[in-house]
Design a protein around this nucleic acid. Structure first.
Length: 953
DNA sequence: ACCGCCGGGTGCC
DNA sequence: ACCGCCGGGTGCC
């Protein structure tokens, strides 16, 4: 008896809400049933690759005449259990793609299916092969499930007298043959895992060759756009104004027909007025290219293709008197009159330095700080003081301030002063009656504001960019919706040109009569949109419930590692019918994960229709979009001295015995922090002996609460410093605002706070079920980081093999060409400190960037956009766990603006944990599962495997 | 006739 | 529903 209630296949609260939304007029029983289905399946299971076909069955849909839903030949239908049906508790209803009920499954078959569905022995997909009469119709049911459930399923169906046809692979390619049953399934060879992975990796590549042309930004934009930015603007405007049908839809007479599901609708399905702008980071001067393009879009494409009507600010106009129209001219005038923009100041300062030493951790966590050069710090931290002295906002910003305070101080103050402008502005610029492709009705025309949602770390970047790229005399109303004093008036928000907020504010508001959700936005923009790829998060749900005419996702990495991640993006863009997970799963995800070629082709088409992505290697009319100098990567093997080797081996043997004990006990995960600490010590040995902190690793030796706290802080710091890209088990993202529990597990503070809040009684640690309270959570006190270092530095300095390897390279390069600048990257800030000594001794000038500030504070300091193109040689002092992090470091140099050939040197200590890390990196890249919907459980086991490999166990 | 057969009424779950 | 099923009317050929 193994029919334990498992998570159900196709409903999660979010998607059912969407499903129901469309349905209000329909029969009560249906929405009821859907609600019940939703509540019984609060946690949605995913369609995983381990789903296998169980077979097919021809059934009958009855009671058609009682319902409105119509079905075309070959159309897919949804099968929904309806346990509350007063006539039959086994009822299984049949619904249309738009959610209209079509009928019921005939009761004898329904009785068999009810059991199967209720116990999640199988998922059912239905296709109506043909229509015969007005009262019943046939339905071809295919059943899918986990291999181990197949016998139970088959047996149960047999008990009811139903025998499955062979469960061969069924193609999803349009079933519109309309033929008689049994429809012949074309026999196709399923894609191999390898083919799939390749196709998937290339999904976002080579999109949008330049058939779009270029579009100039409105004159309001003061920064000239680069050619590929004009191209993006052109594409974005076309997406917003065009009226093309979404992919897979075509007009057939008076109806609109979906060629994949064969559904037809009377109402024209809205083409997403928006899409995904997924330009690669290395493509732009800092990541601000997307920001600039988006600002240009906001200003250039208001209603009916006209620019945003904004009034000039009188005082500023006086200051910078009347100037010729045309963006280039005005830029020149503005620059001359007001001072040059500071976008390039990081390079300018950096150019004076020979060596930049950078903590790669700082980059990964999007933090950047500077120790040595205060001028550089000011440039990076984004103070805009010189640009517009009269502007209140700028004046405030000139004071170097903690970003959070800064945000709080700003919120509410910005546009109040200006909001009065707006009415007159609308009159001042009369709207032309030029007919656009999309006819905009009165309500649509009333929407004005663009809502931009971004991670906190890039909030101030947006504010800066608006100031920097918009003509000084026409600042649009940009309201920062953030901080306790934020203005929650719906009408105020709706009257802004731009409202800027964070995912967290949005999510927090969503729970509690959110004004953001009451506004009808002209446009919603999700910056770093991949952060909401998990649809179960509050942020994701909050985002889905926003009302908007146009929707954009900005992201450098639209898919992180699985097809699954795509769904949230499509749902946000409301790409019919994939915004409902049932259809996404059936039409794309399940076929693709099972190697269906047609499914993959459909996915490719889909992505192509809504995405603009250019990479460094993209071409326009056969010519490279951006010509980048060549990049050479080499690995330099470092041999430890006998002394270092002896110390390393000692640490390795000790670590091995501890970890092998954990492996034997099966307690690796519960001692994860310890394991990471061991690994880190080995990695530190590879770099420099003085990196090793004297950490008492055993929590049990802590006697006093203060001592325990200190131990936890050390552990947390060890985890963070390990560079393991620690993942929060609640949100499954890299931890942000990390805290450690008394049971030594690390989470994002907001995530674990939410867990605690949602627990009625005593909250438990999601990983080990220990009791926990908010007050027990421990975080790293930021100021402590500095003090300790001084202690370490006081000791007598010594060298290490790796230090020597680096110095050898630097000295050689300097003797070859004194103008060469180098970027030295390490995840250990202490290592950077150690490196300072010989660099000074040898007379190298350098700046240092590292992550001593919290992400919020440092976010504005360059963040993801940190641009280090002044350097042409990159030295990665040690391997990263995540190869993408290394790539990111390299891309700081190898991007637009780089004029020299780029050389990358990776130092790897021979016969060490570092070599094992490289092996794992390589193996991971080959691992298909990594790219395709790998299961959560596997992630854990593969981690343990990783640890064993690292420890050579 | 405790049948068969006829033909009208009727029809999801 | 050009079906199946029900139940009343009917009953040699």
């Amino acid at each position: 008896m193994s029919w334990i209630r498992r998570r159900s296949g196709w409903t999660s609260p979010a998607e059912v809400d969407l499903f129901i939304a469309r349905f209000e007029s329909s029969a009560e029983s249906l929405s009821q049933a859907l609600r019940v289905a939703a509540s019984s399946a609060a946690a949605a299971a995913e369609t995983d690759a381990d789903t296998v076909p169980f077979g097919q069955l021809q059934g009958t849909v009855v009671g058609l005449r009682y319902y409105t839903g119509v079905v075309n030949p070959g159309e897919m239908v949804a099968l929904v259990r309806e346990p509350q049906n007063p006539y039959d508790r086994n009822a299984v209803m049949v619904a249309n793609m738009d959610g209209s009920q079509v009928g019921h499954i005939k009761k004898d078959l329904a009785a068999a299916m009810a059991f199967v569905m209720d116990n999640n022995l199988a998922k059912v997909e239905g296709v109506v092969p043909y229509r015969n009469n007005a009262f019943t119709m046939p339905v071809s049911l295919s059943f899918w499930g986990a291999e181990e459930d197949k016998p139970a399923f088959t047996q149960r169906m047999a008990q009811h007298g139903f025998k499955m046809n062979s469960g061969g692979i069924m193609s999803t390619s349009n079933g519109a043959q309309g033929g008689r049953p049994p429809a012949k399934k074309p026999v196709t060879i399923p894609l191999s895992a390898e083919e799939l992975k390749n196709a998937f990796d290339n999904l976002f590549d080579g999109l949008m060759e330049s058939k779009e042309g270029e579009k100039e930004a409105a004159e309001l934009v003061s920064t000239p756009l680069l050619p590929h930015q004009k191209q993006a603007l052109s594409w974005m405007c076309a997406c917003e104004n065009g009226s093309t049908l979404p992919p897979f839809w075509e007009q057939r007479g008076a109806l609109y027909y979906n060629t994949l599901t064969c559904f037809s609708a009377k109402d024209r399905p809205q083409r997403v007025r928006g899409g995904i702008l997924a330009d690669d980071m290395g493509l732009t001067l800092s990541s601000k290219g997307k920001t600039l393009t988006t600002i240009a879009l906001i200003l250039t494409n208001f209603h009916q293709g006209k620019p945003l009507p904004v009034q000039r600010c009188e005082e500023l106009t006086e200051m910078a008197p009347s100037r010729p129209e045309g963006s280039e001219d005005s830029t020149v005038v503005r620059d001359a009159a007001i001072g040059s923009p500071r976008s390039d100041s990081p390079q300018t300062s950096a150019e004076t330095q020979e060596v930049m030493i950078v903590s790669s951790d700082a980059q990964k966590k999007k933090t950047t700080v500077l120790l040595e050069d205060l001028g550089f710090a000011a440039a990076l931290s984004g103070s805009t003081s010189s640009t517009k002295p009269k502007n209140k906002r700028s004046a405030k910003k000139a004071v170097p301030k903690d970003d959070l305070d800064f945000a709080a101080a700003l919120s509410g103050s910005t546009s109040v002063t200006k909001s009065k402008n707006k009415r007159s502005a609308k009159k001042a610029v009369p709207e032309d009656r030029v007919l656009p492709c999309i006819s905009e009705n009165a309500e649509e025309l009333s929407a004005r504001a663009t809502l931009i949602i971004c991670p906190l770390s890039v909030l101030s970047n947006w504010l800066d960019q608006f100031e920097q790229h918009v003509r000084a005399d026409v600042q649009p109303n940009v309201y920062l919706y953030y901080g306790p004093e934020r203005n929650r008036s719906t009408s105020f928000l709706a009257s802004q040109d731009v409202v800027l907020t964070t995912y967290n504010v949005l999510a927090a508001d969503h729970a509690n009569k959110s004004p953001l959700h009451a506004v009808s936005w002209l446009r919603v923009v999700l910056d770093e949109g991949h952060v909401i790829r998990n649809p179960n998060t509050q942020m994701a749900k909050a985002v889905l419930h926003l009302k908007a005419q146009r929707r954009w996702i900005l992201s450098g990495t639209p898919i992180q590692n699985s097809v699954k991640d795509m769904w949230m993006l499509l749902a946000f863009l409301q790409l019919k019918p994939f915004d409902i997970k049932e259809w996404w799963n059936r039409v794309i995800q399940r076929p693709v994960t099972q190697g269906d070629r047609a499914g993959l082709l459909n996915l490719q088409t889909l992505v192509r229709c809504i995405t603009l992505r250019r990479t460094k290697s993209s071409t326009v009319n056969g010519r490279p979009l951006v010509a980048l100098p060549k990049k050479t990567v080499c690995v330099e093997q470092v041999e430890l001295t006998p002394q270092e080797r002896a110390e390393y081996e000692l640490a390795r043997l000790e670590g091995q015995s501890t970890v092998s004990r954990y492996v034997a006990e099966g307690s690796v995960m519960s001692n994860y922090a310890d394991v990471l600490a061991i690994l880190m010590r080995l990695r530190q040995h590879c770099c420099h002996p003085d990196l090793l902190a004297k950490i008492a690793s055993d929590l049990s030796v802590a006697t006093t609460p203060a001592e325990l706290r200190q131990r936890l802080v050390e552990k947390l710091r060890a985890v963070l410093a390990s560079g393991s890209d620690e993942e929060c088990s609640v949100c499954l993202e890299s931890v942000r605002l990390p805290v450690i529990t008394h049971c030594a597990h690390v989470y994002c503070r907001p995530c674990i706070a939410q867990v605690v809040a949602s627990e009625r009684e005593m909250a438990r640690c999601p990983l080990c079920r220990s009791d926990l309270t908010i007050s027990q959570l421990v975080e790293v006190p930021p100021e402590e980081l500095e003090g300790e270092e001084d202690g370490a530095r006081c000791e007598r300095w010594r060298t290490s093999s790796k230090v020597e390897a680096l110095l050898g390279n630097l000295l050689r390069l300097r003797s070859e060409d004194r103008s060469i600048k180098c970027l030295v990257v390490s995840q250990f800030t202490r290592f950077l400190s150690i490196l300072e000594t010989p660099l000074r001794e040898q007379g190298f000038s350098f700046v240092r960037l590292d992550g001593t500030l919290s992400p919020e504070e440092a976010g504005s300091a360059g963040g993801v956009g940190l641009n280090l193109t002044a350097a042409s040689h990159v030295f990665l002092m040690e391997p990263a766990w995540n190869p993408a992090a290394e790539e990111q470091c390299i891309d700081r140099c190898h991007r637009l603006g780089q004029t020299r050939k780029v050389f990358v040197t990776k130092f790897i200590v021979k016969d060490s944990v570092e070599e094992n890390m490289v092996k794992i990196q390589r193996r991971k890249q080959d691992l298909v599962e990594k790219a395709f919907g790998s299961k959560n459980t596997d992630r854990k086991t593969s981690r343990i495997d990783d640890i064993r490999a690292l420890m050579e166990l």
